[in-house]
Design a protein around this nucleic acid. Sequence first.
DNA 1: CGGATGATACGACGATCATCGAACTTTGTG
DNA 2: CACAAAGTTCGATGATCGTCGTATCATCCG
Lengths: 103, 103
Amino acid sequence: MTFDDPIDRGEIDLSAVLHALSDPQRRQIVAELAASELPRPCGSYAPAITKSTRTHHFRVLREAGLVEQWKEGTSKMSRLRRDDIDARFPGLLDSVLGSTPVG
Amino acid sequence: MTFDDPIDRGEIDLSAVLHALSDPQRRQIVAELAASELPRPCGSYAPAITKSTRTHHFRVLREAGLVEQWKEGTSKMSRLRRDDIDARFPGLLDSVLGSTPVG
DNA sequence: CGGATGATACGACGATCATCGAACTTTGTG
DNA sequence: CACAAAGTTCGATGATCGTCGTATCATCCG
């Protein structure tokens, strides 16, 4: 179970996306993800929370289709699926990320 | 508690808005609200769910700042605060409502 | 006044959530 | 091999959620 393959673009569910983005920690992660062009390991995001909580948040983001992940050495890299989200829900990510900083 | 006055435009919280919109029933209500220009009583929305559940959903929408309500006789009218939401989170409502019908 | 109508308040229920710590796995490095 | 580093898994906990039924309140109309 809980495989790492990203879900199809067409199957990205709006409810899941909105729910994923409704959490400030996850929105923070998405914002950092969107800002940094180069992939970074999971551990470099949202340093205020525990490892297990971070794992949980990344799973929510991944299962919602917002993020794609792959392993690289001992680290796990993440990439914001901005193209897919933009294609499926045009303007959504821009408006969420463009709002007052983590407002 | 639980007063009916709408919250200030500047205090509309993105987390609350996204959470409110993450529920399909509430998104359905918002979509109907956005479609019908004339105010309609609460009871005319989302007929599939119970009265108490509908009251609950309208409270979530109101406390998130998405909806304004006022009494009119025995009915309670609702209005989508599109101007305020658009001002605070430009493009958000459009992108959510513009997605595949209640997708 | 007495119904009828539209909506809220009040539990209550099962489900999900965010968070944590401790144990474990995987990978790289000495 | 042994150790360290990065993530995951596995409960557990307290909070919140969506839904419901019933009781209650407010308002209108006869």
